[in-house]
């Protein structure tokens, strides 16, 4: 110990715990990915490499439909949430604090604070009421619910980008005869774009991952991939669940890597 060079930031044992944490965090995920390529029927004994669980999953119409539904909902929700979040971010930053601004923050960030199960129950009651009254049973309910809880995830990166933006750029544009709309189109929006894309990607990922709210809001035959998986697990864990999980995981990691690179370049 005495021979070791002094370092003020080193705390004994911390690095070891941290490395163990990373291992424990990733080992189950890696196991899941590896066993999705397992030829055996077991999810614990290795029987050689195979893509058969992917084929089985893909041959299953229920899985295919759930995948398409998940993508439709996630794309719509990301688009809607990002649009309203961009507007809200423009409305709540870079102007003198106004009365009710805190209320707007609270409402926008509400999905981050209220337990999902509570929102899920609320939507079950409310949308159930509308379903009975109007007779409409379509995907609109899921899209509306997903759009709503994705708003804060889109709002936060856009707002961060706006707050880091130099106000004098817009003043300069106005000075150079740009109308407010031209200023927005030619100056604000292009600078804001990485934040908007980042926000949209997070919203997409969040929508794609949702289980609880979807489970409560969906009408019969409206399973998304996660709720389909939840139903499957209830019976028995089969390797095709691993295959679906791996596919979702890869999609998430790709989007997050893009998000990471996108937000890093601005620094």
């Amino acid at each position: 110990m005495a021979e070791r060079a002094f370092s003020a930031t080193r705390l004994p044992g911390f690095a070891m715990i941290a490395v163990a944490v990373f291992l424990v965090l990733y080992l189950p995920i890696f196991t899941l990915v590896i066993f999705s390529f397992n030829d055996a029927n077991s999810v614990a004994i290795w029987g050689g490499f195979s893509l058969r669980w992917y084929q089985i999953a893909w041959a299953n119409d229920a899985v295919k439909e759930a995948a398409v539904r998940s993508l439709i909902i996630a794309t719509s929700a990301a688009l809607i949430a990002t649009t309203v979040a961009t507007m809200a971010a423009l409305g709540t930053t870079r102007r003198a604090a106004f009365k009710g601004q805190t209320l707007i923050y609270v409402i926008i960030n509400q999905p981050l604070m209220v337990p999902e199960i509570v929102t899920a129950v609320a939507l079950l009651i409310f949308f159930g009421f509308i379903k009975v009254t109007t007779g409409y049973q379509g995907l609109g309910y899921l899209i509306a619910a997903h759009s709503a809880f994705c708003v804060p995830f889109a709002y936060l990166p856009i707002r961060a980008r706006l707050e880091g933006m130099d106000l004098s750029l817009e003043t300069a544009a106005a000075d150079l005869y740009a109308t407010p709309w031209q200023t927005f189109r030619k100056v604000t929006l292009p600078i804001l774009l990485p934040g908007i894309i980042a926000g949209a990607m997070l919203a997409f990922v969040i929508s794609l991952d949702d289980v609880v709210i979807t489970e409560f809001v969906k009408s019969g035959g409206q399973d998304t991939l996660p709720t389909y998986m939840l139903g499957q697990i209830r019976r028995a864990v089969t390797p095709d669940v691993n295959a679906i999980s791996t596919a979702l995981l890869v999609l998430t990691v790709l989007l997050l890597t893009a998000f990471f690179l996108l937000t890093r370049r601005r620094d």
């Binding site: 309203v84 409402i107 926008i108 509400q110 509306a144 759009s147």
Partner: peptide
Amino acid sequence: PALLLLGFAAS
């Protein structure tokens, strides 16, 4: 728009 959406499908 954000407030309406959240008011309808969350709050």
